[in-house]
Design a binder for these strands. Structure first.
Length: 271
DNA sequence: ACTTCGACCTGTTGGC
DNA sequence: TGCCAACAGGTCGAAG
């Protein structure tokens, strides 16, 4: 499910319900996610107050004075806030119950997500320490991407999806931003000019921003017992549009596989 | 240091 | 209609 906009929408959605709230209980129903949910956090998190609800890349961070919960939604994870003890369903693996009777519940059918606990600075955690810049930050520039791509033989699309280069660009937005910038996803990262990166970087920022804005409009639906973060209504130009006409030129959209992921592009518009 | 690839899971979809 | 392979918004970690 989640690319960066959806993770950010989730963060914004849960924040007002749990910030400054005291944890009364932690429920682990199925601990085998990507990594086992540490049992130790049950005791350590209970009684703590959520001081900050942050995000780094696709990780959501719940800070307390005793430690930080690191959440990742994987491919199929979703978070919801429930007002009281609603009966959990099949894939509801993890709850944080708050003193205000609200529950933060993680659902994750494929269990590629993660719930971790760290007492140290979470940004120094093994999984976060090597992450690249946030795509919407000032640190993410064409110059940065250009320099980072020198001597990189990987295709630009895989390069963009490498979280050590830049966080938060998943399969959908890698495809979409390359289309908008007119860059063929198969091109080798090191052979792309600064000029092309100067087209690409603003496209990434614009597309992500727009998507986050649209996610914002769905926040109300997202936080309730029925709701899931719906798909944002953003028009996708290439993703999932195999053989359909390119929205710019009409040529059929081509689908290929790169790094074990589906790539969609227009052979006419993307050179 | 970089690249590739298998692995982790369940649910849905599309072709026969 | 039913079955089953293929595929799905991620990314780690081992091996080359």
């Amino acid at each position: 499910m989640p690319e960066l906009p959806e993770v950010e929408t989730s963060r914004r959605g849960i924040k007002p319900h749990i910030l400054k709230q005291k944890v009364s209980k932690v429920i682990i129903r199925h601990k085998s996610l990507r990594w086992p949910i540490p049992t130790s956090m049950k005791k350590q998190l209970a009684g703590q107050v959520i001081e900050k609800v942050d995000r780094r890349g696709k990780y959501i961070l719940l800070y307390t004075s005793a430690g930080t919960v690191i959440l990742h939604l994987g491919m199929s994870g979703s978070l919801r806030i429930l007002k009281e003890s609603v009966t959990p369903e099949k894939h509801d693996h993890f709850d944080i119950v708050f003193g205000n009777n609200k529950i933060l519940r993680l659902r994750d059918p494929r269990r590629f997500g993660a719930v971790l606990w760290t007492k140290k600075d979470p940004l120094h955690h093994k999984l976060l320490i090597n992450l690249g810049p946030e795509p919407l930050s000032d640190a993410f520039t064409a110059q940065y991407l250009y320099e980072a791509s020198r001597n990189r033989k990987v295709a630009i699309k895989a390069f963009l999806m490498n979280s050590n280069i830049v966080v938060g660009v998943g399969n959908i937005y890698a495809n979409e931003s390359l289309f908008s910038a007119g860059i063929n996803p198969k091109r080798v990262a090191s052979k792309i000019s600064l000029i092309s990166y100067q087209k690409l970087v603003p496209e990434i920022k614009t597309i992500l921003k727009k998507s986050i804005e649209q996610g914002g409009t769905t926040l109300k639906d997202f936080i309730n017992e029925n709701g899931k973060p719906g798909y944002f209504q953003q028009t996708l130009c290439v993703y999932g549009r195999t053989a359909e006409p390119c929205l710019k030129c009409g040529h059929p959209i081509k689908q290929i596989t790169q790094a074990q992921r589906s790539t969609f592009y227009c052979t006419n518009c993307q050179k």
